[in-house]
Every structure is written in C-alpha cells, then in structure tokens.
Design a protein around this nucleic acid. Structure first.
Lengths: 238, 238
DNA sequence: TAGATTGTTAATCGATTAACAATC
DNA sequence: TAGATTGTTAATCGATTAACAATC
C-alpha cells in the first residue's frame, strides 16, 4: 500500500485496488446532490454542507471522496462541477449503458416510465415478456418508442443491442431461468426485482430490490418500538 | 454481556440488546425460503441446505439464527415450521401492519398490485395522491377495493386507519413535505421510493429504494470489468 | 458408539468515527 | 497571519468467517 503509493502516482485514483463497496453505494447519492447544487447555481461546497444534504457525516463523506483522489481544496471546499464530473467518471456514467428489461407487467411499466434512466446515461434498449397480451405493445420510453418482444427473442435482442445491464421484473417462478439465459448470453450485471434468490456464476453482479424485505425490516423496528413502549408486561411479570 | 446472560435467561432471545442490523436484513430471506420449503412438504432442513437456498454461507446463517435463540437440534437440523414461526414472530409478522401509499402513479400502481403484501401480514389501508386525474380512482388491492383519496386527507386517513407504515412513491419534489406530514401524524416507519434524501427526527426509520442508485452501482462494476479486460493501455504505457 | 450438525468462540476483515496535521 | 476546511491517521465498532466443542 505505502509501496504502491510511492511509485507510479500517475493516477490519482485510490491505491490501485478497489474502492470500498460501502463507498461505491454512496457515490450515486453524492452525485445526485451535486447535480442539484449545480442546477441551483452553486459553484463551491464544503464537505460539511454536502454531507448534510446527503444525510451522512462529513467525516464519512471526506473519507469516501479520498478514495477517488484529491479533488477538494483545503480551506475552500469542493468545486461542484469538478467533483461531480470525477464521481460520474468513477461510476462509469461518462459512457452510455444499454439496459434490457425482462418482464413488462405493472413494475416493468413503472420502470420504463422512470425518468432517471436517460438523465444518467442509461438507455432502455429492449423490452421482453412472455405474455401474449403484452408482446407487441408499443411502449414510450425516454427516447424512442419500443415494442415489447417475445421472451424467445432474449438472446437475439441482447446480442443485437449489446445491452450490458438487465433488469428482471418477472414473477419469481420465471426469474432463475431468465437469469440463466441472460448470463449465458454474456450479461454480467443484473438488477433483480423478483423475490427469488438468484444463483449465478462468479463474476456476475446481481443486485436485488425486494419490497417485501424492506417492509419486513420496517415491521421489525416498528415492533421493537412497541415492545419498548410497553414495559408494563415485563414489570407485571416480575 | 456475560452478566446479562447469567441473570434472567427466562427469554431465549439474544442477550437483551438488539439483533444486528445485518442479521435483521437477512431474516426476511430466510423466512421466505423456509415458507417455500414448507410448501414443498419439507419438515427438516440443515443449516447447510438452507444457507445454500438463501445464497449465504452456513456459518453466517447459524450465526444469524443464534441471535434469535436456539431453535435447531444438533445432529439433525432445523424444523422448518418451528424456525419459520420464530423468525416471523421476531420480524413482527405475527400481527398485521397497516400501510399507506402516498403517490399512486406508475410505481404506486405496481405496489398496490403486489401480491407480497397480504401474504406477509401487510394490509394497504389507504392510497393518497394530489393529482385530480388519479383522485377518486377505484383500485383493487389484495383484499377489498380502495379509492384514491386527495393528499389533503393524509392526516385524517393515517389516524383513522391507524396505519403504521407509509410508502412514499411521489416525485422527489413532493417527498420531503409528504414525509414531514407523515411524521407529524405519528408515522415512524417510512419506505421511500422517491430519489430524495429525507430528513426526519431521530426515532423515525426510513428505508430507501433507489433504482438509479442500483443501476449506477452496476455500472461501476461493469466499467471495472471492462477496465480489467483492457490491460493493454497499461502495458503500453509502461 | 459413530456420524451429523448445531451453537459458540476467536480471529479477521471492513467500515465508521473523531481528531488533527497539512494547507489553502 | 488567522480562519477555514481538506485529506489522513489511528482507534473503535460491527460483521464475517473458519474452526470446533457440545450434543443430538
């Protein structure tokens, strides 16, 4: 570590090895808030102010940013546009990524209509479903219109569009099979909305969004609160 | 710790203080998989098998479960129904929780149609929106039908239904204001789908689901992979 | 008893935090 | 120079992991 820092500092980036996962997970937040500041005409921001807007401590923010390089000015703060650019570069947002959505039910429709795709360099390049009622439907996305293709076209579509990210929004029963086909076709980044545990080979990155899990975590804390507010039962027991 | 374990072991639960956050976040997965096993008629399962189905290591699983108590049998494994019950009890799923959804756009509709609510003891007790086109719309949920109420009814509806969990599915611009009103009305568990950083008083639990963040994390790893596959540039540089 | 599997221990790893030296 | 704020250090905390004693 101290070694790799001594030689070849041609790159300001980290210490050659990775940026911590926890940091990567927060970079998109920093980026979004910085964009908001830029829109408001703010040119410079301190770690204190930025951290507050992002809902983290300033120590954490500075530590996170230190992994990317040294993009601030002591005594002054960070130049909004400059920092924003470097974060987006680090996240890989300076190049466009093609996204395929598999499963165009209620959730799939909601995803298609989501404005946040295009503004961050993501482009929906394909929609797939197996249900006859949905196949052929013309759906209006950020850019151009797309027609929902039959699921049998998965391989062709992924290859033709050279999509690199896939979103699985199918029922749980179909998720693993869809996942296998995506992986076989070369997709290595998958966002899974189906409530299933996907099995993938090493090297494939799966992220999962699970409404039921989130609600259950909230329920746990809610119950904890109720328990804490009713020490009566415990007192009476003793 | 060793002290609290010595006295009063009337409760098998943990050491009196909390279950680790990381563990709580995995309990819903264990629970879902256990339910699946029960449906398949499986009565007993080992930590090895269960862990594999949940996509975690068996060491992690056993450690997690050890925080709830000692519900397995050495040399045998876990009784599916028994363990499932204890997890659901721990998560607070043995009692029903009322959920209010604020914002009934594409995403809101997708949430309403989500089957996973009722099956886990969550009941949608109210829908709110500020858009005239949506207000008054009759929406079919798991149980009975609901009519979308105007946003002005937020306080009345939350109180009348005694909802304890709120889902914010509004645009970012409205999220903080909605959140403030929810908190003022007594809601302390919020699931936020809006891409904003919500500010809440201590004691209020906010969980955030952010599509853009998930995609950007995937993009980061995707780019990393591309970089790693092109060491050409680095070789040529040297 | 022999084989299997849990629950727990102790070591390791990664993330957070507070404090401060460096420096604008 | 004086005030402000970064980038880094070192301590702390929490989570993961492997190994194994306890025990069915």
């Amino acid at each position: 570590m101290s070694l790799s820092r001594q030689l070849g500092s041609s790159r300001t980036r980290d210490d050659g090895r990775g940026i911590p996962d926890a940091t990567v997970a927060r970079l998109p937040i920093y980026h979004r808030v910085l964009r908001g500041l830029a829109d408001d005409g703010v040119h410079t921001v301190s770690s204190d102010t930025l951290a507050q807007r992002c809902g983290v401590s300033s120590a954490k923010l500075r530590k996170d940013l230190s992994h990317l390089g040294s993009y601030g000015t002591r005594g002054v703060g960070y130049e909004v546009a400059f920092l924003s650019y470097h974060i987006s570069r680090e996240l890989g947002l300076s190049q466009p990524w093609g996204v395929v959505i598999v499963g165009v039910g209620n959730l799939g429709h909601a995803l298609v209509s989501y404005k946040g795709f295009a503004s961050r360099g993501f482009e929906i390049v394909g929609l797939l479903d197996s249900h006859p009622d949905v196949i052929g439907e013309k759906v209006c996305t950020g850019g151009r219109d797309l027609v929902v293709q039959p699921l049998t076209e998965l391989e062709n579509l992924v290859k033709a569009s050279s999509a690199s990210i896939a979103v699985i929004a199918t029922p749980a029963s179909a998720a693993q099979k869809v996942c296998d086909r995506l992986v076989a076709t070369g997709v290595r980044s998958i966002l899974n909305f189906a409530p299933s545990v996907l099995t993938v080979p090493v090297g494939v990155e799966v992220r999962k969004v699970d409404l039921a899990v989130e609600l259950q975590i909230l329920a746990f804390h809610e119950q904890r609160r109720v328990d804490d507010l009713t020490p009566l039962a415990q007192v009476m027991q003793a």
